[in-house]
């Protein structure tokens, strides 16, 4: 199949999409289906692997290879797929409960190993498919069916967790921001290594408006800041405010204060400390950072697996009969008692 001829439609599986009307997943699906024809890879080379949850139905709607696995384990299955066949473009589709709660361990180790695949983490801060229990990213005190008196757990910070696990690509996007989402997805796909894209996604049934404080069109410019590598950290309707990273402290400054305005920091996505700081900024004290937080070139796990095999092959021929006969053997002949 010629990849140049592919269109969005080629990536639609024809299965009826069964997310709730108004779910943020629709826009993510559309963004991915629009992106894939641009990547130049034949359809059969893409594999979407998911766990369990609303987001994990995603592979059924993609006309590519897909595997809807079990709760939390998509990173582990995907690791096996990528190691077995590194030519495949492997995508992991997961949610906040799937990746950060039941699958927390695999999430950690996937990034540590730097397996060359792309993780899309749909973060709606709720368990949707089980009808509305608080999730590991729900704010503390969340009132849900399972926490009528408020949840007691601190929410986990997925980006900080990934950075702590030595992830080589960490980014955040918003379901309703098609342009921003598409740019981040493309960068994640092109990154050699394990890429994390946290996508703020709205569950309009069980946690409607979880991200609206920063996602509403009217407030986006004011309450988000797009991280651009090599550019100043500025935001606001008129791009008239900025962030000054002063040691480990961050302050918001205004262009009206020229002395402060000169100090606005330039973002460096290869700077782990900056990424760590950005991963902890939140509204209302700060704008919510979006885009690529961190990117680092590091050897990928799946490549190293094959490098070791090649080295071993260069060193010693694989002769199984000889291996079986290695060590101390003896021969019994027909005449022997």
């Amino acid at each position: 199949m010629s990849s140049t001829a592919l269109t969005k439609k080629d990536f639609e599986s024809g299965q009826e999409v069964r997310w709730c009307p108004g779910c943020g997943d629709y826009s993510i699906l559309a963004a991915v289906q629009r992106l894939l024809p641009q990547l130049g890879l034949p359809r059969e080379k893409h594999v979407f692997i998911s766990g369990i949850g609303c987001s994990s139905r995603f592979p059924y709607y993609m006309n590519t290879y897909g595997f809807h696995t079990i709760h939390g384990r998509a990173p582990a299955v995907a690791t096996g797929v990528k190691i077995a066949n590194p030519e495949l473009a492997v995508w992991v589709i997961t949610g906040d409960g799937d990746a950060l709660s039941i699958g927390g361990n695999h999430f950690l180790h996937l990034f540590r190993r730097n397996v060359d695949l792309t993780v899309l983490l749909f973060n709606n801060r709720i368990y949707g498919l089980t009808k509305g229990q608080y999730s590991p990213t729900s704010e503390k005190g969340k009132i849900t069916k399972s926490t009528p008196f408020g949840s007691l757990d601190e929410p986990v910070n997925p980006l900080a967790l990934a950075l702590g696990a030595k992830a080589t690509f960490v980014a955040r996007a918003l379901d309703v921001d098609a342009k921003g989402l598409s740019a981040v997805l493309k960068a994640a796909y092109e990154h050699k290594g394990a890429s994390l894209v946290e996508i703020y996604q709205n569950c309009n049934v069980f946690n409607d408006g979880a991200h609206s404080y920063m996602s509403e069109r009217a407030v986006r410019q004011e309450r988000q800041i797009l991280l651009r590598d090599g550019e100043k950290l500025v935001f606001g309707d008129n791009q008239d405010r900025g962030l000054v990273i002063d040691g480990t402290k961050v302050r918001v400054v205004s262009s009206s204060d020229s002395k402060e305005w000169d100090k606005v920091s330039v973002y460096d996505k290869s700077d782990l400390t900056q990424a760590w700081i950005m991963a902890h900024l939140n509204y209302p004290q700060y704008p919510v950072p979006m885009g690529v937080f961190y990117q680092e070139e590091r050897e990928v796990y799946n490549q190293q697996v094959y490098d070791q095999i090649e080295t071993a092959r260069a060193g010693e021929q694989a002769d199984l009969q000889q291996l079986l006969s290695s060590g101390e053997t003896w021969e019994v002949t027909a005449g022997q008692l």
């Binding site: 995907a78 096996g80 066949n85 495949l88 095999i309 071993a312």
Partner: peptide, 27 residues
């Protein structure tokens, strides 16, 4: 025995070991 093309994977836990094998089988 990597010279036999064997891929060995020491996983983070038993579950991952099984899931990675399933992924490899699928592929």
């Amino acid at each position: 025995h990597k010279n036999f093309g064997v891929i060995t994977f020491q996983a983070e836990d038993e579950i991952a070991a099984c899931c990675a094998a399933i992924g490899a089988s699928y592929a």
